[in-house]
Write a protein that binds this DNA or RNA. Structure first.
Lengths: 309, 309
DNA sequence: CATGACAGATAGCCTGAAACTATGAATACC
DNA sequence: GGTATTCATAGTTTCAGGCTATCTGTCATG
């Protein structure tokens, strides 16, 4: 595109130094090369940029305006380069997608910690269900997503932690009287409450139900974890909750009793997913570390060193 | 400067179309050329701009930020070109220098007329005395100056009009009783009031005094035309005033009587001066025309078709 | 008035960045 | 598993932009 960036540098230098010769030596080119380029720009734009005289050159009125614009463009070009090599992860703006069953419970502490340590990094969080997260990642709407690591071809996954599932039942429920973890057998024949289909948690609960001989409530699928806990408190069934929710929200409200669940399907892995070849591990490691720390702070046991899969 | 503008166009096109091949044909280059340039930018900046996959390419987080900046730079480049060829005279910003004995009287109507006809043209007016005007023009602080056409080497001059000088005397002065123009003889032996030395008007008045046998008041040189007219009203002498002042300000205040002056030195030419070879006559003609119309509107007789000298 | 000195413009040549064609490698879909 | 699609690589060619040498025009000075 004419004029070129180099030509913009030339006209700015000539304007600043007021002499072709001076500008040429400052730019480490010969004076004829500089003259030719200035003439080229003037021909291209169809106007005269400088008044030539013995005593030096002075910008014309139109030239002064164009030089002002050229300075601005060159400065923004410098900014672009600085932004590229400036070490700010994710270009200063991370679009993070997260499962609704994780985000509100894990992220608040993590985001504020990241903001403390990296004030220049803006984090935009969106909660969407599994398949929308994956689609958004592939379409470039997200830079990173926090999801479960199954079947996401074409992505690089960083294991964050694995969390167990918990149950919540009304205080007058039989299960509320036991101590310690609940086993699969204890749930035989019970009604399970979970989120709408489409949420990852829903599929896990269906698998759990078939494992331990329970049935998933078709009628009362909830749209939020708080919602299904309230349903459990009313005696509608056994709410299946992720550990992050329990650790953060569990203590509030004593209408339900919370107990960990021990079963083959009763845990899920949480991973950080990104597109592509995984060269940009620096920024991802930063986020992954913060997320693991956040999970540890919540008291989640299954935090291990992340492994790419 | 790397990356080049062309490379910026390339990354923007790839981001917009999501496919190397599509972007390449849209840009009228071959796909390998495009790939090479993208790879070049990524190597230069030390980061990956796009996630490649079968289904297309998606910007990385850092890439998205850089593409945003690239779009901005390209848009401003378009603006620069538009500003160059957009026909707006003087790049939209005219720095006009003018003599203090002309500016406040001639310019108000002219500037508002120009603004009506060319709303996109900003006019910055500065009043300075002759030698500062010339210096400012040569140093590029002014795009055009309105001054007297004498001895300004290295400039192109466009004659605007010539104005006569007028006198102002107190109502009880002997000269106040005559009618019609005052002749040089009538001023013999009188005390002339004028502006400080350094103003062009001052030199003309000194020449006039030596022609018609008067004396210039050394003691009461004024800093404004209104000021010397007030001195004349107090009987301090004969104020010598330019016609533009009289036409605009003369009627206000009847403490003095105004009469035109006829003498060899009793007129001065006013010209529009600009630097350089005079290729950019289009904008100058516009301003010159407006100034001549303004002078005619004030009733100044000496408006002729402008001649370059 | 001639002449020297200086600044920018012009001429001719040369190098290197970027274009093209042809081909290879990898993945998704039938 | 074959095929088609998509991006990457290799080798060649062309032209923008660089350099040296020289010309032109203006100011200062003898």
């Amino acid at each position: 595109m004419r004029p070129s960036l180099r030509q913009l540098e030339y006209i700015v230098a000539v304007d600043r130094l007021g002499r072709f010769g001076l500008a040429a030596s400052a730019l480490n080119v010969s004076q004829p090369s500089l003259s030719a380029q200035i003439a080229e720009v003037e021909a291209e734009l169809g106007l005269r940029l400088f008044h030539r005289s013995r005593t030096g050159v002075v910008a014309t009125a139109q030239g002064a305006e164009l030089i002002r614009r050229a300075r601005r463009i060159l400065r923004e070009m410098e900014d672009l380069r600085a932004a590229a090599s400036g070490g700010v992860p994710f270009g200063g703006r991370l679009r993070l997608g997260v499962l609704p069953s994780i985000g509100p419970y894990l992220l608040p502490g993590v985001v504020s910690a990241l903001h403390r340590n990296h004030p220049e990094l803006r984090i935009l969080v969106r909660e969407e269900s599994t398949q929308w997260l994956e689609q958004g990642l592939k379409a470039g709407r997200f830079d990173l997503i926090i999801s479960t690591p199954e079947d996401h071809p074409g992505t690089v996954q960083t294991r964050l932690f694995s969390e167990r599932l918990w149950i919540a039942v009304a205080r007058d429920d039989a299960l509320a009287r036991g101590v310690g973890p609940v086993r699969a057998n204890d749930l035989r024949g019970r009604m399970f409450l979970t989120l709408d289909r489409g949420h990852r948690l829903s599929r896990i609960v269906y698998a759990l139900a078939s494992e331990c001989g329970g049935v998933v409530s078709e009628e009362y699928e909830g749209t939020s974890l708080d919602g299904i806990r309230l349903m459990a408190a009313s005696g509608a069934g056994v709410a299946i909750l992720p550990e992050v929710y329990v650790r953060r929200q569990g203590e509030a409200g004593h209408e339900t009793v919370l107990r960990p669940l021990v079963a083959a399907q009763a845990s899920r892995d949480i991973a950080l997913l990104q597109l592509g070849g995984g060269e940009e591990m620096a920024g991802t490691d930063l986020i992954a570390g913060a997320l693991r720390q956040g999970a540890e702070a919540l008291g989640i046991a299954g935090v291990r060193a992340g492994e790419e899969t």
